[in-house]
């Protein structure tokens, strides 16, 4: 028996259809873990011009708590540009002013290379993992 196929409905955009601003880029998620002496921030995703403001907000909030240690765990950051670096430098300047230990850990090779090109590996306290960050 032959099955009669129904014609596919042609999708017609209704007059109310709007063109989005393509802001569908997901917001940067930043996990915050509380330590006895401070915080570990763990951003998840690329940190570029569109997403670095979210990291800046979380860093500012953490610094308001006057911790003695602030760790940024970059294990889930595959990519960072100079906007991300600028955000970290801002935080570094605040921590220096307030005598807070600021440690960056778990850098991917790609993120480490941008720090190297910008000659920032010796400016930040960069360690391999969380354990070292908690002892630094």
């Amino acid at each position: 028996m032959r099955t009669r196929l129904r014609p596919r409905a042609v999708q017609v955009f209704k007059s109310s259809t709007t063109i989005t601003n393509m802001s569908g880029a997901t917001e940067l998620v930043v996990d915050v873990e509380t330590l006895p002496d401070g915080f570990i921030l763990r951003p998840k995703g690329d940190v570029d011009m569109a997403r670095s403001p979210a990291l800046r907000i979380k860093l500012t909030e953490a610094l308001k708590g006057k911790p003695t240690r602030l760790v940024v765990d970059l294990s889930d950051v595959p990519y960072m540009d100079s906007s991300g670096l600028a955000t970290l430098i801002e935080a570094l300047q605040t921590t220096r002013k307030n005598k807070i230990k600021f440690i960056v850990c778990n850098l991917s090779p790609r993120v480490r290379s941008i720090l190297e090109i910008a000659r920032l590996t010796t400016v930040f306290t960069v360690v391999d993992n969380r354990e070292q960050a908690l002892k630094a």
């Binding site: 600028a86 955000t87 300047q93 910008a118």
Partner: peptide, 14 residues
């Protein structure tokens, strides 16, 4: 100047 550590100004260098 890369020794002048401050936010911004790295894009052209990169």
């Amino acid at each position: 100047d890369l020794d002048d550590i401050r936010p911004g100004g790295l894009g052209v260098h990169l």
